[in-house]
């Protein structure tokens, strides 16, 4: 089997995403989900959590794209001619 150097770089990209995805819910939970919404309404509570979490997921995916594009361009420049 020929192990491409790019595979190692993709593993690093995936590792970074994993670190983000296990840290983000914790930060969200600690600082946002526990905030009191007065007067408390379960539907509004869920909608707000959904909007915040989908926004965070969107930011995460955007970061993933940008990191991946950067790594791809870096690897493309170092290829054998």
């Amino acid at each position: 089997m020929r192990m491409a150097k790019t595979t190692l770089y993709i593993c690093i990209v995936l590792l970074v995403q994993w670190v983000i995805v296990i840290t983000l819910p914790f930060l969200f939970f600690e600082y946002l989900a526990r905030a009191d919404i007065y007067p408390y309404n379960p539907l509004i509570d869920e909608v707000i959590k959904a909007i915040l979490s989908f926004t965070l997921v969107g930011i995460w995916l955007y970061e993933w794209m940008k990191m991946g594009e950067y790594v791809y361009k870096f690897l493309s420049k170092t290829r054998f001619k």
Partner: peptide, 18 residues
Amino acid sequence: RFVVSRDPLSEFDAYLNI
């Protein structure tokens, strides 16, 4: 495309890398 971006690979090697 990402896996073969630096060096070309055979189909089987690309499969193994993924």
